[in-house]
Computed example of a mutant assay.
Amino acid sequence: MPVTPFADRFETLATARSPLCVGLDPAPETLKAWDLPYSAEGVRVFGLEMVEALGDRIAIYKPQVAFYERFGWKGLKALEEVVRHIRSTGALALADIKRMDIGHTLEAYAAAWLGEDAGTPVDAITLGAYMGSGSLKPVVDRAVQAGAGLFVVVRSSNPDGIVLQNARQEDDRTVAEALADDLTLFNRGQLSKLNGAGPVGAVVGATLDDAEGVLDRLRTSLILAPGIGAQGATMADVKSRFGRDAARRTLPTVSRQIAHAGPNRAAIRETTERLREEAFALRG
C-alpha cells in the first residue's frame, strides 16, 4: 500500500495547526519545576501531560530520547507510551536520537524507529552524518519506503561544532556545505508536491548568523531549527537569518520555553498559542 511521504504529512498538518515543533525534554530541572521525580515515571507523566495540554493544536512533537534512555527499559517504555499518545492526537512524532554509524549498525538504528514494523515507530528521526554522508544511504532508503522523515545535523548552534562544520575541503566547500549538497542529492526524485521538500531534512541552529551559504544548498529540505527561546533566538530571528524561502520550510523548535510554563495546562496553552502564531508568520 502506498505511503504518504513525511513532507506531505507535515505540510498538511503545518497548514492546519502551525509548523511549530514542540520539544519534549524532561531534564532534571524541568521535572523539579513540575514537582515530578527524576525517574521513568516522571518523564512519562511529563510527556503525557505536555501532549494532553496541547491536544491537537500541534503538528509535530520532538521527544529528546536521551532523557528517556537515561532510565533504561523503563524509560524507553515510557517513551513508547508518549509517542503513542502523540500519534493518537494526529500529530507527528520526531525522535531526537542523532544516531551515527555505518553499515548494519546504522540500519539497525533505523529499523528501531522507522516503519510500522519498528520497535518504536515514529514519523521522523534525527541523525549525525560525520561518518560520511554515504553511510546514510540505507537509512534514506528505509525512510523513503516507510514514508518517514530524516533530519541530519548540518550546522549546529553549539560553538564547539564550528571548527569541524566550517572546515574547508579541497574544493573550497565547507564540510557543512558539502553535506548539504549530499542531502539535496538524496532528495532528488522524492520531492513533495505540497512544499517541494524531500524526505531528508537538515538541522540548522536558529542562533546562527552565518547559515545562508548552507541554507542556499538545502532548497529541497525541511529545516529543523532548535535554539528558539531559552537559547536566545526568536521567531523573528529565524525569518531574518534564514530568509523567506528557508523560513517557509522551517520547523521552529521550542522546548524549555513551553515546558517551563507548566505544569499549569492553561499557562502551557497560552505560551504555545503565541508561539504557534509566530510560527505561522514564518510562512507569510
Score class of each variant (00 low, 15 high):
M50Q: 13
P63M: 08
A59N: 06
F71V: 04
E69W: 00
F67W: 13
V43E: 08
E69V: 00
G42W: 02
E49F: 01
F71Q: 02
E49V: 04
A59K: 01
M50P: 02
V45P: 01
E49H: 11
V45W: 03
A59M: 07
D56T: 14
R44K: 15
Y61I: 11
V43T: 12
K62R: 09
V51K: 02
V65A: 13
F67G: 07
A53Q: 03
G55R: 03
V65P: 00
E52G: 11
M50S: 12
F71H: 06
R57N: 13
E41Y: 05
G47E: 04
F71S: 06
A40M: 09
P63D: 08
S39V: 06
I60W: 01
A59G: 11
A66G: 13
A59H: 02
A40S: 14
E52M: 01
G42I: 05
R70E: 14
Y61M: 12
V45D: 12
A59W: 01
F71Y: 04
F67D: 10
F71A: 08
V43P: 04
E49A: 15
I58W: 00
D56N: 14
P37L: 12
K62D: 07
V51H: 02
A66K: 05
S39T: 14
E41P: 00
Y68R: 00
M50G: 08
Y68A: 08
E41V: 12
K62W: 02
V43C: 11
Y38M: 13
E52Q: 12
A40K: 07
I60N: 09
S39H: 07
A59L: 08
P63S: 10
L48T: 09
A66P: 01
L48P: 00
